[in-house]
Design a protein around this nucleic acid. Sequence first.
DNA 1: TGACATACCTCGAGTTCCTAGGTATAATAT
DNA 2: ATATTATACCTAGGAACTCGAGGTATGTCA
Lengths: 114, 114
Amino acid sequence: MKADKSLLSGSTTLLVLSLLSGGDKYGYQMIAELEEKSDHTFSMKEGTLYPILHTLEKSGAVESYEKEAPTGRTRKYYHITKKGLRLLGEKKEEWASFSQAVNAVLAGSAPAMA
Amino acid sequence: MKADKSLLSGSTTLLVLSLLSGGDKYGYQMIAELEEKSDHTFSMKEGTLYPILHTLEKSGAVESYEKEAPTGRTRKYYHITKKGLRLLGEKKEEWASFSQAVNAVLAGSAPAMA
DNA sequence: TGACATACCTCGAGTTCCTAGGTATAATAT
DNA sequence: ATATTATACCTAGGAACTCGAGGTATGTCA
């Protein structure tokens, strides 16, 4: 992560679920899309993503299936479930109130720098 | 932390420095102000705050001094240094790009819920 | 045939936060 | 007077999370 990696903490699940709400995707693809959509601010590592996907699957938030790519390779696609969509909704609200709270604290501090 | 505690990661230093940029403060006071300014979204724990203050002091971002309160108790006040202000500036930029990136990913996903 | 990109996975180390405990003093209640 | 609560500081150990580094396997391209 370029922007202090520790900021990422806690938002990874939100980001993954958000990506999957836009359609089924496989792991490697999610990493690339995150990097692209965030304009290279995020670069989630495989060692981070795969365990998250496995946890989400165990909890029923996503489901996986294998599918052969045009190239002939087998990819593991993930699909977000209704439960996952509910979870996404909650995480979005958490993020909204969290970022709002941070901005509120920042607003009360020294004048914003250029 | 009410909003998924793990979201806090990485933003604690930013929040503390931001508070101190508004004037010298002591630990207990910072916890109360954070809770108030964030409208009870944050409730930073002592076990989190004090080690952070010690680390910031070791790195020269803040300085501390003891001062007797009107009540007669001794309080340990922290003052942000020039180095600390620089650090605050960096952290603010990190936060700005991070939150922007998250919102960019969210924007590309399912329609925002109410 | 060898090198590289794709695609998946796991383990262990490092970081960060919190719980739970401790110490001490001032204010308040009994 | 004494007990309880609030203030105010601190630390150690555990839990959670991310990442680096490594492993496996297949497809592409020189």
